[in-house]
Design a protein around this nucleic acid. Structure first.
Length: 485
RNA sequence: GGCCCGUUGGUCAAGCGGUUAAGACACCGGCCUCUCACGCCGGUAACGCGGGUUCGAUUCCCGCACGGGUCACCA
C-alpha cells in the first residue's frame, strides 16, 4: 500500500485517563497531518492485557471527538490499512520477524529467563550495562532445527551489528548517532509468539503507511533500533518528531495521579475544551507571530513542527486560567449563560433572581466556570456581615452615612414601577446629582445592603435588578434596621 | 552506572555571531469605575558554570554542573 499524502497516527494504549501530555501528542499528530492536507489515523495499542483498563478506549474516543481531533481512519471508521486495533493485527508479525531471520537481521534465541537473569546479574556486578550477551547469535542451522523440533521455547531477537554506528534524523533534535555496541539485541517476538511493542510498532507504522511519527521523546533512545529494523526490511524510514514531555514541576512529568492534569478533570473543573486545546498547543510549541489565541482550524494553518521546543515544559495552571478567561469572554452572552447556569445553580436556588442578568455580570469576572458558585453565594440570602463593611475610605462612607444613603435610596426604589437596571440607574443618579454627593456615597451602601459583601460581581444597581424589586426592598429595609441598631 | 537529550526572567517562550535580549502569563503601579473584574497605560525580572574559536558569543566547539529519558519476553 502506498500513499502520497502525509499520514500520521495517534497510538495510545487504553490504560486509563487521557492526560494533557497524551492529548498534546494527539494534537501535534493531528496538526502535522492536517497542515499538509494529510490523513490522521487512530490506532489502539491494546496488547498489554495487564494494564488494560475498562472504558479507557471510550475515554480516548470521547476526548478526541470532543476536542475536534477527528481521525480519518481508525477502529470505528475503518480504512484501507485496518484493522486499527493492535490486538487484531497479531497474525502478521511473526512472518515479518521470520523475514528478518532470513535476511540475517534477527535470530532465534532459546535462552531461558534464569540464564538471562544470571547474565544480567554478572554484568551488573561488574558495572557493565545489562545487555543480552549474544549467546544464541551463532547457533548453526542444525542446532536451531534440533531445538525447534524438540519444542524448546524461543524468542526472536533483533541482530544488532556489533560495530559501527546508527544515525537517525529527528525534526526537532536533529541528527542523533549512537554506537551499535550500546544497543541491545532486543526481543522482537516473545515466547508466546506475540510481538513486543517495539517490533509491532515498527511493522504497524510501516504497513499503515505512516509518514510522520510523532511521539514522546522517551522513545528517542529506542529509535536507533527502529531504524535498523526499517533498514533491514528495506523500508522507508518515517520522519521522526519527538516531543519533549509536559512536566508537573521542574523534575516530575505530569501525572494525573495527584492533580488535575487529565482532560476530563479540567473540563469538570469548568475549563472550556477549546481553551484547553489552545493552551496545550502552546505548551512546548510556539507559533510564528505573537498571537496566542487560536481555534483548531487556525492552529492547522499556523502549524509548523519546527516551532516545537527541545526542552520540557511545565504545565502552568495560571496561564491556562488566563486563556480560559479569554475564551469565556469571547462567548456570546447566551452561550455563556448556558454554560454558567449549572454553576450558578450550585449556590443559587432562588426562582426569582434574574440569572441571565447575573450571567451578564459574571462573564468578565470568571476565568474558570468553577469560580462562579462562591461569587454568587449571596443571591439566595444575605450572609452575616459586620457593620464595618459600610466603612470605605475611597467612597467616603461610614455606617452613619450609609444609613442616610439607604434612607435616600429606599423610597426611590419603592417608587419605581419599572425595576430594570436602566431605570434604577436613572433614578438613583438623578438623586445623586440633586444631593451633590459622590456616586459611591449613595451606591456603595446599596451594594453592601443587598449583598452583605464589599466586593461583588456587578454594582449595587445591577444587583438590585438581578434580585428583583421585592427582594431588593426587603434587603434595603433590613439593612436600615441593622444600621439603626 | 553506560548511552541519549535538554538548560534564556517565577512560568510558557522569541532568538538561530553584532539586538536597548521580543511577546504572553503571573507580580507591582496607574487610569477607567458605585466595589471587584474586564479594558487601557507603565514597571520589576533572564541567557547554569568554566574554558576555547572569533574583531565580537545567548547563539559555534569542549569540559563541568544540574535536570530528564532509556537500558524488560511492558507499552
Amino acid at each position: 500500500m502506498s500513499f502520497d499524502k502525509v499520514r500520521t497516527r495517534f497510538a495510545p494504549s487504553p490504560t486509563g485517563y487521557m492526560h494533557v501530555g497524551n492529548l498534546r501528542t494527539a494534537l501535534y499528530a493531528y496538526l502535522t497531518a492536517k497542515a499538509q492536507d494529510g490523513t490522521f489515523i487512530l490506532r489502539i495499542e491494546d496488547t498489554d492485557q495487564e494494564r488494560y483498563v475498562e472504558g479507557a478506549v471510550d475515554i480516548i474516543y470521547n476526548t478526541l471527538r470532543e476536542t475536534g481531533l477527528l481521525w480519518d481512519e481508525g477502529p470505528d471508521v475503518g480504512g484501507p490499512v485496518g484493522p486499527y486495533v493492535q490486538s487484531q493485527r497479531m497474525g502478521m508479525f511473526k512472518d515479518y520477524a521470520l523475514q528478518l531471520v532470513e535476511k540475517g537481521a534477527a535470530y532465534y534465541c532459546f535462552c531461558d529467563k534464569d540464564r538471562l537473569e544470571e547474565v544480567r546479574a554478572v554484568q551488573q556486578a561488574s558495572g557493565m550495562a545489562p545487555k543480552y550477551d549474544g549467546h544464541c547469535r551463532h547457533l548453526t542451522p542444525e542446532e536451531i532445527r534440533e531445538k525447534l523440533d524438540a519444542g524448546v521455547p524461543y524468542v526472536i531477537r533483533q541482530k544488532v551489528p556489533t560495530e559501527g554506528t546508527v544515525t537517525f534524523h529527528d525534526q526537532i533534535f536533529g541528527d542523533i548517532t549512537v554506537d551499535c555496541a550500546d544497543l541491545d539485541d532486543q526481543v522482537l517476538i516473545k515466547a508466546d509468539g506475540m510481538p513486543t511493542y517495539n517490533f509491532a510498532n515498527v511493522v504497524d507504522d510501516h504497513t499503515m503507511g505512516i509518514t510522520h511519527v510523532i511521539r514522546g521523546n522517551e522513545y528517542l533512545s529506542s529509535t536507533p533500533k527502529y531504524n535498523l529494523l526499517y533498514e533491514a526490511f528495506g523500508w522507508e524510514v518515517p520522519v521522526y518528531i519527538h516531543c519533549p514531555p509536559v512536566m508537573k514541576d521542574a523534575t516530575h512529568k505530569l501525572s494525573k495521579r495527584n492533580g488535575d492534569a487529565s482532560y476530563e478533570d479540567l473540563i469538570a473543573k469548568g475549563y472550556l475544551k477549546d481553551a484547553v486545546l489552545n493552551y496545550i498547543a502552546l505548551l512546548g510549541w510556539s507559533p510564528k507571530g505573537e498571537r496566542e489565541i487560536f481555534t483548531l482550524p487556525e492552529l492547522v494553518r499556523e502549524w509548523d513542527p519546527a516551532g516545537i521546543s527541545k526542552s520540557p515544559a511545565i504545565f502552568d495552571g495560571q496561564k491556562l486560567r488566563y486563556i480560559n478567561g479569554e475564551y469565556i469572554r469571547a462567548l456570546a452572552p447566551e452561550q455563556f449563560y448556558e454554560k454558567a447556569l449549572p454553576w450558578m445553580r450550585q449556590t443559587v436556588k432562588s426562582e426569582t433572581a434574574d440569572l441571565r442578568a447575573l450571567a451578564g455580570v459574571l462573564q468578565a469576572r470568571c476565568e474558570v466556570l468553577s469560580d462562579i458558585p462562591e461569587q454568587v453565594d449571596f443571591i439566595d440570602a444575605v450572609p452575616e456581615y459586620d457593620l464595618s463593611l459600610y466603612t470605605n475610605k475611597k467612597m467616603k462612607t461610614t455606617p452613619e452615612t450609609s444609613l442616610a444613603a439607604l434612607r435616600e435610596t429606599l423610597p426611590i426604589l419603592e417608587a419605581l414601577p419599572d425595576f430594570t437596571a436602566g431605570a434604577i440607574h436613572e433614578a438613583l443618579f438623578a438623586r445623586i446629582a440633586q444631593l451633590e454627593v459622590k456616586n459611591g456615597w449613595l451606591l456603595f451602601p446599596l451594594r453592601v445592603a443587598v449583598s452583605g459583601k464589599q466586593f461583588t460581581p456587578g454594582g449595587g444597581i445591577e444587583l438590585c435588578a438581578i434580585l428583583g424589586k421585592e427582594e431588593s426592598l426587603r434587603r434595603v429595609r433590613a439593612a436600615i434596621q441593622k444600621l439603626e441598631g
